[in-house]
Design a protein around this nucleic acid. Structure first.
Lengths: 108, 108
DNA sequence: TGACTGCCATCGTTTTGCGAGGCAAATTGG
DNA sequence: CCAATTTGCCTCGCAAAACGATGGCAGTCA
């Protein structure tokens, strides 16, 4: 998958995922890989900066949770402001797809 | 429209447009504005570098044409390699849209 | 012990779109 | 007739984003 196409879609993807419930970084990466059959390999170098940015803008929040084996995980959770933002992003996404479709033509 | 979302879609858009016939830069900008009702204002700072890059890779070619009033326009024209590349890009685009849809969910 | 997985993260590079600018000729309006 | 706008080409520096590479540390299993 062309990396340039991906740009800008990461927040949309992350907020959509977190809408289903809190997740931790590694889990997000694995979930994305699994659901796309491996065609989208979200990288750590893209994920963590994106998560931290979403947290800085208070669209999501995070908390550490200790597992039974004593290790810690950082869970990310969507915030009300994030849901609002997500709704706007979804709208923008649909407009974007429509826009490109105008030129590329309908799908086969 | 979020500029980050646009990234990577410009070659796809340009090749799709040029598939309809040769066009010059200013005409491309106006066509894009018109067809999207103004929601996509393709900028010169994005257009010309993109065109030149497509030409450098020989996906398109260009030629100058003199108008009746004596002024010159530079027309861009898709090449066979460009059509092949476009087909691949279209496929990739559809996969990309599907991929995001997996997470964002179906449209309303 | 060593390899592997889980889990966090950062840094530098590359690519891209954009704003701003430059230049010049044709057209339009007062 | 002159000024402003439109047409038409282009470049440069900036910001934003994804990536590959790298690093660190804790369990697990052979």
């Amino acid at each position: 998958m062309d990396r340039e196409l991906l740009k800008g879609s990461t927040p949309l993807l992350l907020l959509s995922l977190l809408c289903e419930g809190p997740m931790y970084g590694y889990q997000i990466i694995e979930t994305v890989r699994a659901r796309t059959g491996g065609s989208y390999a979200l990288k750590e170098g893209a994920l963590y900066p994106a998560l931290h940015k979403l947290e800085a803008t208070e669209f999501i929040s995070s908390y550490w949770q200790t597992q039974e084996n004593g290790r810690e995980r950082r869970y990310y959770q969507i915030q009300p402001a994030g849901e609002t933002f997500l709704a706007a992003k979804k709208l923008e996404w649909n407009q974007f797809v429509d826009m490109i479709q105008v030129f590329v033509g309908p799908r086969d």
